[in-house]
Simulated scan of single mutants.
Amino acid sequence: MKTIATFLTIAALTACAPMPNRDSAMTLQSGAFTMNAEIPRQYTCEGANISPPLTWSHVPAGTKSFALIMDDPGIAQAGEPAFNFVHWVLYNLPANTTELPEAIKALPSGTGEGLNGMNATGYGGPCPPSGRHRYFHTLYALDIELPKSIGKPTKTELVTIMKGHVLATAQLLGTYEKQLK
């Protein structure tokens, strides 16, 4: 009888326990556009081609640095293979960083830049050859600072180096279709 009473007490306490806060997952947002919305022209090749403002929150404990990758995974067109065009690669953003301002010129101290799809560092805004494309801004919370010796990695190289060190990710998806043809 005592076993049943103990079981019922545990079951009742479990049923009344607060649910985990699902809002505590790391988030990535922009004051310029919302999830799945169109990226404003000023952040594209048809505008000033400046980086959008980004902010993040709910960073996991143990975060030592962040990495940010913006890419366009593309879709296969008739008779063509799918592609992945990389627009921005940052790593070793300090753990106390929670934002990147619009048109950022000076990155936080210690931040490294990788190579984008134009084989250069820095932000390269959306510039789809045709149709509406999706642009993923992915923030990675890492449990280490990456070695400076990695230099200017490509997205593929950075993802390989980060393997096993990602505590959390957050994504912001924007779209863009060229207005001038």
Rank of each mutant, 00 (worst) to 15 (best):
T97K: 09
P40K: 04
V166K: 06
T160C: 07
L142P: 00
T55S: 13
T55N: 09
E157F: 00
L139G: 03
N116Q: 06
N92K: 02
I4D: 11
I144F: 11
T175E: 12
T27E: 13
N116K: 05
N21A: 15
A25N: 11
G164S: 14
R132F: 06
P20R: 12
T98E: 13
G125N: 02
D143K: 08
L90D: 03
P52N: 00
Y123G: 01
K2P: 07
V166N: 02
P60V: 00
E157I: 07
V166C: 08
Y176C: 02
G74Q: 03
S130R: 13
F7R: 01
D71L: 07
R41M: 13
E99Q: 12
Q29K: 12
M35C: 07
A17W: 08
F136R: 10
N36Y: 12
F7L: 13
S65R: 02
E113P: 07
P73W: 00
H87N: 11
Q179P: 09
I39W: 00
T138E: 10
I39R: 04
S149I: 09
K2T: 09
P129R: 14
G110D: 01
F33Q: 05
Y135M: 02
G131Q: 05
T44N: 07
P94R: 03
T175A: 14
F136S: 01
F66K: 04
A95H: 04
L68A: 02
T156Y: 13
A15N: 14
L180I: 13
T175G: 10
T6C: 11
T3L: 13
Y123E: 03
E177M: 12
I161C: 08
H87C: 09
Y43I: 01
T175L: 10
